[in-house]
Amino acid sequence: MSDFSFARVKAVLWKDLLELKKNNGMIWSMLALPAVIVLVPLGIVRTYVANPSDPNFRAIALYYDFTVDTDNAARFLVDKVLADWFVLYLMMPVFVPILISSHAVSGEKEKRTLEPLLSSPVTPLELVIGKSLASLIPSVSVCLLAFFFLCVGVDLVAWPLAHDFILPNLMWTFGVFVIAPLFAFFGNGVAVLISARVGDSRLAQQLAGLFVLPLVGLAAGQFGGVLKAGPEYYALIGGIVLVLDLAIVFSARRLFDRERLMSRWG
């Protein structure tokens, strides 16, 4: 590791970002999920705001919390859907890096570019770091952008009801800037580890994609009223992912071997 070179990491980062920029199909798939993540809650908030005195909303609010102030049921539900939605927002920082990394890592093998690459001075560690950055930078940017649009959208849609800025709030801000990057690190790590073992980028994507499922399970639990989302709840999830991230760093150390990469990847 003594001959680590930031210049080579930068070269890999530059090349991968350039390839990503020129891959229109990838750009569109990267943006599809964020679009859904932003637009769906806006739709839901809109129904609450459109007719806040709908008696059905009281019933729904009471189902979640029987101590609720039923005069403000719509506002309660807006806050609740936003608190719950964060778990689905987290799908994005997991899924987008999976999309990019599995393509970038298995792609080198599929396109037979790995051997020339490994015959250059670049070390496997530099390669993994460069590729991870090339996946994390666009992923985290997309997540921040999506959060920006979500805040603007929610505040516009909910203004008639709230007469105040609902987002950004403390929980979302902490989640977007701290928990989401931890998830992105996790998604990227899983994708790199899997792609290094299976040569096929589609298969790698699908296998890594399975790691999104626990989030869907959590969301189901929340909307079913079994799990109650809140700051402590998300802090706990963030803590778990932090531990998983450390486990990934640990198991990735075995990846940093040129020959292993050659025989697994090449």
């Binding site: 090349k15 350039l18 390839e19 020129k22 891959n23 396109k111 037979r112 570019t113 790995l114 051997e115 020339p116 690459l117 015959s119």
Partner: peptide, 12 residues
């Protein structure tokens, strides 16, 4: 090393 396959980045 000139590898058996040219291994170039096609989009670049």
């Amino acid at each position: 090393l000139l590898t058996e396959q040219p291994g170039l980045y096609e989009r670049l």
